[in-house]
Design a binder for these strands. Structure first.
Length: 556
RNA sequence: GUCCCCGUAGCUCAGGUGGAUAGAGCGACUGCCUCCUAAGCAGUAGGCCCCAGGUUCGAGUCCUGGCGGGGACACCA
């Protein structure tokens, strides 16, 4: 189609200027007066060739004469080339969209290669909180974007079912269990105080009765630990399922010990000669790989720090064949990035493995006031409570609409609002409206034939909308490459805004001649073709984000 | 003290590899239902893009140094 022909011709011209590798853009200009497509090639060449950009632009313009589908080329501003397409070429993309349908927006960048996205990875020590929610939404959307870019994606959840935190959980459950049995007992310092711990103690009591009354043994504590982890993991999976997030694999930390990976990692690290003993602990010289300080692998009491199984875990990712790994984590983990990579580099893995997406904190506001506490968890708001209150789709969208590295304020009033103030409803509503047009058309016995003549779509707004729909695949590719789902949100909101404007210009009381469902068959078919393409783009965009695109919305 | 992230309209935030006149939503104000769903649309007002240097034909964007906010700097995970 025209855009590709122009792109090829520009590339060809660049190489004739002796700059085949020059980087330039060919995209939809912000202002529709600047044509359907614009390129900065002349500007990009000017610094290379040390010549005035407008002069280069004139030579380019001459060379680009006669490309099929291009009506005219203008030189504008400092030296932009603005391309105005033939009417028929503009609308052609609408037919391509309809043809591709559910596949519109996909690209083949990944070439079927494997990639792992690890996310959530909550400790089984309590219900999922909002940070986990953001991570679940982000990780799932990034995974989905990668799938749309032809990657074969493995979604993984790593859970730390070993270590100090789990012991504290078990001890907290023991204290609550004793209380159930009518004894005096206090949750230990550093223990877990949320109401859920008491729930777990009660369900434990339901299973075992008073079998562990006055029992301080390790066996008793182990039984409580097993029970607590099982219950909490089940709860986390339920919450994630309610949020619409599924994993291909849950990888437990204990497996790393059971299958000898941790021990093997210690041996392998020792073999590198980068380890040493100080103060009775075993250290790794991670500073050799850019870490700020060396790290302890094995504590003086003989137990490994978190660092060691983490290295072992990432070695398992490599050994399972994943050469591309994206870890989605809270930015409070940022200090682990350097040390884990350092450990992996010590073992010969490449620099920058794995890749990290670190997101900032989430806070919740209602009525302009921060909401902090939850009955269930004690000190934080849980994901389940949020999903319960605003629904999975709204929660997902809100988690995704900001860049990961920006702090997120979750405005509950806005999330609960059911009008265009709420971006989720705005996008969904635009989709539902377009669907409604097709429903009404069917009722009147009107079909929209394939390959309808799109030349009647000549208004400025229609052209702008078409060019925006043309951009969708590029927008998804950019989002996938940058691991940035908010790019999709931004795209959808703007597209929905345009769809709504376009729809409204055909308001029956003001300008019925601009409605979609007009008597004139040629006009109607052209407009239905545009509406159909918009429907596909909105639906696919929401699908990437894991959000439903309703065909009708019921007013409340 | 060191490291990471952020600083753009009154508020919440977008701004692709540096490119044309800086963009949305909310809030404020003004219009528009004889209905393809007004859950909407059109319009108006609102900007030293934190500051100071630098690179460049061109900087919100890149570099350096400040200032302000958040986070991380355990033999916790």
């Amino acid at each position: 189609m025209a855009a590709e022909r122009i792109s090829d011709a520009l590339r060809q011209a660049a190489s004739e200027f002796g700059a085949a590798d020059v980087r330039f853009r060919l995209d939809r200009p912000r202002d529709a007066d600047h044509g359907d497509l614009a390129s900065n090639l002349a500007l990009a060449l000017s610094s290379r060739l040390r010549r005035a950009p407008r002069e280069i632009a004139q030579e380019l313009q001459a060379r680009l004469e006669g490309i099929g589908g291009v009506h005219r080329i203008e030189i504008a501003g400092p030296g932009f080339l603005n391309f105005f397409l033939e009417e028929s070429a503009v609308g052609q993309v609408l037919h391509q969209i309809r043809e591709a349908d559910e596949a519109y927006g996909r690209n083949s960048d990944g070439g079927g290669r494997e990639i792992m996205v690890e996310f959530v990875s909550a400790n089984p020590t309590g219900p999922l909180h909002l940070g986990h929610g953001r991570q679940a939404a982000l990780g799932d959307a990034i995974a989905s974007l990668l799938e749309w870019s032809a990657w074969s994606v493995h979604r993984e959840f790593y859970f730390n079912d070993a270590g100090v935190q789990i012991e504290r959980l078990a001890e907290s459950v023991r204290a609550r269990y004793r209380q159930v049995l009518g004894h005096e007992a206090a949750v230990p310092d550093g223990g877990y105080h949320g109401a859920y711990v008491a729930d777990i103690a009660r369900s434990f009591h339901d299973e075992v009765g008073d079998r562990y009354d006055n029992d301080d043994s390790d066996a008793a504590l182990r039984a409580m630990r097993r029970h607590a982890v099982r219950v909490l993991r089940a709860e986390q999976e339920r919450d994630l399922a309610a949020f619409g997030v599924r994993f291909d694999e849950y990888y437990p930390e204990t497996r790393l010990y059971a299958d000898g990976r941790v021990a093997a990692t210690i041996r392998d690290l020792d073999d590198t000669g980068l380890t040493y003993v100080k103060d009775g602990a075993a250290w790794l010289r991670t500073t050799a790989f850019g870490d700020q300080k060396d790290r302890v692998m094995v504590k003086s009491d003989g137990s490994p720090t978190y660092f060691l199984p983490d290295v072992a875990y990432h070695m398992s990712k490599w050994d399972r064949g994943f050469r591309e790994v994206v870890n989605v984590q809270g930015s409070d983990h940022h200090s682990t990035v350097d040390r884990v990579r350092a450990g992996l580099q010590a073992l010969g893995r490449p620099t920058g493995y794995p890749e990290y997406v670190l997101h900032q904190m989430v806070t919740v506001e209602r009525g302009g006031e921060e909401v902090r506490f939850s009955k269930r968890a004690g000190s934080y708001t849980t994901l389940a409570e949020l999903v319960q209150e605003v629904g999975a789709d709204v929660a997902r969208y809100f988690f995704l609409m900001r860049r990961p590295e920006a702090h997120l304020t979750f405005d509950l009033d806005l999330a609960l609002d059911q009008s265009d103030k709420n971006p989720v409803y705005k996008v969904k509503y635009a989709h539902a409206r377009v669907c409604r047009l097709f429903e009404l058309a069917r009722q009147r016995g009107w079909e929209c034939p394939r390959g309808a003549d799109t030349r009647p779509l000549a208004s400025r707004m229609e052209r702008e909308l078409i060019n925006r729909l043309r951009e969708f695949p590029d927008s998804l590719r950019r989002a996938a490459t940058a691991r940035a789902p908010h790019v999709v949100c931004d795209y959808l909101e703007k597209t929905a805004g345009l769809v709504n404007s376009w729809y409204q210009t055909g308001h029956p009381t003001r300008s019925p001649e601009r409605a979609v469902l007009v008597e004139d068959e040629q006009l109607r078919d052209a407009r239905l073709t545009l509406a159909g393409a918009a429907r596909i783009v909105l639906r696919n965009g929401l699908a990437v984000l894991g959000i439903e695109a309703p065909e009708r919305m019921v007013r409340l």
